[in-house]
Design a protein around this nucleic acid. Structure first.
Lengths: 136, 136
DNA sequence: CTATGTGCAAAAGGTTTGCTTCGCA
DNA sequence: TGCGAAGCAAACCTTTTGCACATAG
């Protein structure tokens, strides 16, 4: 049983065929798939899956924080398995999403929130850019 | 003629009654109104305005960069007049939006993008927090 | 006068939900 | 077997759009 499945069972979810497939799709994804993407990939493994189930499952996983939902100003959501904390840089020319971490940034966010009199619960940082012409 | 109106005329837009009203609503707003909010406020000044016009006008203003569109993960957009660059901290308990600026942050963003081989075109930073209990 | 803008209602696109049936525990 | 889960289609919500009429310049 995969780690994701394990955690679902522990949370009291029934491990249905559909959920197993969706978890598998998410587990092997190397990108940040949209609901439609997850649906298509899941359907390739089990053609009986409906998009309603994909939506319901992703919402559940999001609540359980097994997954992170992103909205990169595209009008729809994209998901990824919740692993290490990181941020995203979206390539405006290709749509490619690059992940990064930055310790200095983490500290700065905490400081800013605290200075404003707030406890930081969540945050979101996205960079949008174009690849620099590297003269090779 | 208000500054916003001025800039619209310069951009070649016809200054209709509806646009004047919408610009006025945006100009005096002290919050970050949703399209529905703008529509309601505009209707109070001119009951003939339709929501389609509000959407069309806000899109135009956004393209012209007279206005900034935000999506605070609420499922709809909010707008504000484009003034000084700043970021937002959303109070998770009240929905209140606090604006802030931070020079260190600006530099850090540029550096991160550059280190990843990108030219930073746009970015988005939102903090979500709860007010600290201040023992007064 | 005419290109641009508006109102209205319908359509679009993503997401949610009611209801019935299915199947895991 | 009983209750959570799935499939299907309709409903929802925000946003966009086609079309006929109105109006700024």
């Amino acid at each position: 049983m995969s780690n994701l499945e394990q955690r679902c069972v522990e949370a009291g979810l029934k491990m249905t065929g559909q959920r197993r497939v969706i978890l598998r799709v998410l587990g092997i994804a190397e990108d940040h798939p949209s609901v439609e993407d997850v649906y298509d990939r899941a359907k390739a493994l089990d053609s009986s899956i409906s998009i309603a189930t994909v939506y319901r499952t992703l919402s559940l996983l999001d609540e359980m924080e097994l997954v992170v939902r992103h909205e990169f100003q595209e009008g729809y959501s994209r998901y990824e398995v919740n692993s290490e904390h990181h941020h995203h840089l979206v390539d405006l020319e290709t749509g490619q999403v690059i992940e990064f971490q930055n310790e200095e940034l983490e500290k700065l966010k905490e400081k800013i929130a605290h200075d404003l009199g707030y406890e930081l619960i969540d945050h979101r940082l996205e960079l949008y850019g174009k690849k620099l012409k590297s003269e090779k």
